[in-house]
Design a protein around this nucleic acid. Structure first.
Lengths: 327, 327
DNA sequence: CGCTTGTGTGGAACGCGTTCCACATCCGCT
DNA sequence: AGCGGATGTGGAACGCGTTCCACACAAGCG
């Protein structure tokens, strides 16, 4: 493989001149330009990015940590952030952490090893104290990872409220509430706290099912719905993440319950799967693309050495009424 | 940031000794071991992977090119291959190519730049002649990228046959056939050729709708179904990729057609979305996990300098009968 | 005792592109 | 003529970890 020295020799110039030309820095005469161009073509030269990276101490790669890309929420998030970071010249390293409890730490370790310039984390099994030791660019999505780590999140309290109020307006009195995983003081959980608060305030009976934080697969979701159904709790409303909401809906339909007449359903996330089932599911929609854009902006700012303008960016969720609630 | 020299100085040994200790190569006395260990801890030393990479001329990263991760087929593929490659010590760089026509070439270029050690490509807008100039490890998934590029694929001919025969057994006489994108001589397309051949052979009327290769989004799919519906072709069978099959099903239900009595549907891919809609959709299921595993095995073998045992690995698709065809 | 072999070590050279510094022209201007 | 500035260039030093070579010392053996 030809190196810059070979090019310089072939073109009859010094390595510095070749480097300046490639990087468009400093002076290079028209004559040298042509000779170097010819040499590069003749030797089929491509700069070794590894060497550049070493010198610059950066790789141009950002790690994005998610539990699982096959979950449509994270798939859409990754899709968007990849696109966003691509235009800024960064590549995305994909890190699924659910498969293996050591993966999160290992991927974070790549920051120290200079393999990645920054991390966007949508997971948090490791906890604040672990993250607090990291002095490199990290952005948290939907969870607190420590005081010095900027977070991009959604107003889940408001999201939980919208869901709760809609079910109440719809006249629900007995609601099945699948509570997501995770620490209670992570922004993510606000939807459940607020939802539950409003339910209690209005004397609505609820049956809460707490999900494990490390399972996002269909099998587990189906199992969860099974168990909730077997509890014998007679419900006329459901609040759950997309996939579970859909599963509940299908069970209800199988039991000849009418949707939305007998059971109202509000899903959380509003990924495209709520729109491909029939009836389409009413959902609190997370602004995934915006979440990705803000996360991208924040991490690139951090990498560029700028302080993020805000340590906490809170986006708005929206309510998308479809056919699983009354018109 | 502390470097290996600092550690060596602090421990009172030479850099070579530190390096040997870190890499477990060569001799290091117990005494040196302890001193180095202490020094590493004291200085919070982590080796700079960039420098190692430069020396070794490899980055430990494999680029996986897909049109779009939000498509569940690719999401599941990436999910699996990431897991597979993780155990082999490789990281995955995610490359969505649909967003931008230049992205595929740019990501491939990273091979030359030594940013990635190999590429697993599930896309092919660039064509054989482009790929043929690449002398680095590349594995193709479901498409031919040239004679010297190993391919992992599925027996789509068989897949197309299973779908066709099932619809015929079900008594379909007028079938809506959404044909996927791409070159006709890519393995991927075999399903359509074979399906169509059998349809023609049995004098089944078909209405073929050809999809654009560069669109995988819901909007486009909905538009496609719209157009096909508007054609006025009265059909009693549908063969299409998951997402479109589902869309067709929903349209039919809305028009009060009964599934499967009035219209039979066979989807291709069999990702989880065919299982969350009601009725569940009969599908030719691609062995995505296996596809990922074989692709991972092949690319790691290539990177290790081994020749792949086979230049073409063909896996079996299976038919999963659900409720959109007769029992 | 002399020799081989095993153990252990320091440090120079290397991989490869970037930057910086010293140095050389050539131009215009006073 | 003399000076300042723009233009242009070559190559050493650097970033940082790895490898290899020269060298040192101990033990084992005839």
């Amino acid at each position: 493989m030809a190196g810059i020295k070979d090019v310089a020799k072939y073109a009859g110039v010094g390595v510095g001149t070749v480097s300046r030309m490639i990087n468009g820095s400093g002076y290079v005469s028209e004559e040298s330009r042509e000779k170097i161009q010819a040499a590069m073509k003749a030797l089929d030269y491509t700069p070794n990015e590894l060497a550049r990276n070493l010198y610059r101490k950066k790789s141009g790669i950002i790690a994005v940590l998610v539990p699982n890309v096959s979950n449509p929420f994270f798939a859409e998030f990754i899709d968007s952030i990849e696109e966003e970071l691509y235009v800024d010249g960064f590549k995305v390293m994909l890190c699924n952490t659910a498969k293996n409890s050591g993966a999160e730490a290992e991927y974070l370790d790549m920051l120290k090893r200079h393999i990645v310039d920054g991390v966007v984390s949508c997971v948090s099994s490791l906890g604040e104290q672990y993250y607090s030791t990291i002095k490199k660019p990290v952005v948290a999505v939907d969870r607190y990872l420590g005081d010095n780590i900027p977070v991009v999140t959604v107003d889940h309290r408001e999201g939980g409220r919208m869901a709760a109020e809609l079910l109440i307006e719809n006249g629900c009195r007995n609601v099945l509430h699948f509570r997501g995983a995770g620490d209670i003081d992570t922004p993510y959980y606000d939807r459940h706290s607020e939802f539950q608060r409003i339910m209690d305030e209005n004397n609505i009976r609820t049956y809460c099912y707490d999900l494990a934080w490390d399972r996002m697969d269909s099998e587990y979701y189906i199992e969860a719905v099974d168990k909730a159904m077997q509890s014998g709790f007679a419900f006329d409303g459901v609040f759950a993440v997309d996939r579970i909401a859909i599963e509940c809906m299908n069970r209800c339909l199988k039991q000849n319950k009418r949707i939305p007449e007998d059971v109202k359903i509000v899903a959380y996330d509003g990924t495209y799967i709520t729109d491909i089932v029939e009836p389409k599911v009413t959902a609190v929609v997370q602004p995934i693309e915006l979440l990705a854009r803000e996360a991208a902006k924040t991490i690139t700012a951090l990498i560029a050495g700028k302080d993020p303008e805000q340590m906490k960016i809170v986006l708005k969720a929206t309510l998308r009424k479809r056919s699983t609630t009354l018109p």
